[in-house]
Design a protein around this nucleic acid. Structure first.
Lengths: 180, 180
DNA sequence: CAACGATGGTTACAGGTGCAACTATTTGCT
DNA sequence: AGCAAATAGTTGCACCTGTAACCATCGTTG
């Protein structure tokens, strides 16, 4: 073993273990709440929310993968499940025969609208309500740095949508047939 | 759907999506590196590191679960795998016949010592090196708040070990037979 | 000291994910 | 045009995890 390893200093180890604990506990809590209340995975919720945000509620699979920080095989399977449940539908892409488009159905919008309030409630409970405004700002910068290091090509979509109209089901209600 | 839902405000949504992205990307990166270089899951690494830190390198299964923020079924299976690979061994608990103790073997220490440098290298690359001292401090406080909200009974062990001698394989080298 | 609830741990089951291999297009190069 | 390399997506395989049900043991209470 190399002895030039730079070990984590005092404060660094605490912060790292804290982040690791959050990464273990938060996803479980989110998945648990959503599957119980809406029969949705947290990742499925993210997928629906991403689609709801985009024009025509339709986008390419690759872009959807980027927008949810997922691998292509993963999003492919999730999309298959969501289509089976009628929440989305796959369509042809005019300009590229290899590509497939994914479109949020009415049923999918309803599902998202139905699942959002309780989900946001949990997010508020464990995130918004326990952090100060400064901490929210600090965390944004911290995550940007880490993401930038993990994803140097900025493949991730989320960044693109920062500061826009906001993500339905997250920062505002989901538009439904009635109020669209 | 309740219309008294408190949606995420501008800054809040950005921070939340940032944290979500980190929770999607970081574990994958960590698992990928560790399985490739050491045939270990990140969670298995954490388990070994937790055991290495404790007196006699032996502890109860329940405490090990708390120390790694894991459920009992999960740690039970991981322990079974690690025992199969000879990295730990299960032993009787003198004071409680229901309980089982888990002990890190010599082979387990060697494995941890071998895996640590490259793993710490990745942690430095995507965490330590991209954050300032202030951000490290900020993140520690932020994670404490979130964890406190997710785990009100403070079941989590990590807290107990904050500021101690440090976790072998993380904040210092793993003691081996030679230098023990 | 008997019985019942609580606790420690394991396992069957169902479901999600990464990796690698594979097919179908498209793009670039000559 | 023609061919090689890159890209879009799907799927088989292996593996990991949560939930729930289950057994064993402890502790408390009457």
């Amino acid at each position: 073993m190399d002895d030039d390893t730079r070990w984590l200093g005092g404060g660094e180890a605490d912060a790292w273990l804290g982040l690791v604990a959050v990464m273990e506990l938060l996803p479980v809590a989110l998945d648990s709440q959503l599957t119980r209340d809406a029969r949705l995975t947290f990742f499925e919720f993210l997928t629906l929310a991403q689609l709801a945000e985009v024009p025509e509620r339709e986008m390419r699979l690759t872009d959807l993968a980027a927008g949810t920080n997922a691998s292509l095989p993963r999003i492919s399977r999730v999309v298959a499940r969501l289509e089976r449940d009628g929440l989305i539908e796959r369509r042809h892409n005019e300009s590229d025969a290899r590509a497939r488009n994914v479109r949020l159905t009415e049923m999918g919008r309803d599902k998202l609208a139905e699942a959002s309030p309780r989900h946001i409630g949990l997010v508020n409970q464990h995130f918004t309500d326990v952090l100060s405004r400064e901490q929210i700002t600090q965390l944004t910068a911290i995550c940007d740095r880490i993401i930038g290091s993990l994803d140097p090509e900025r493949r991730v979509f989320a960044e693109t949508f920062r500061g826009r109209s906001g993500r339905p089901g997250l920062s505002r209600p989901v538009a439904t047939r009635e109020n669209d």
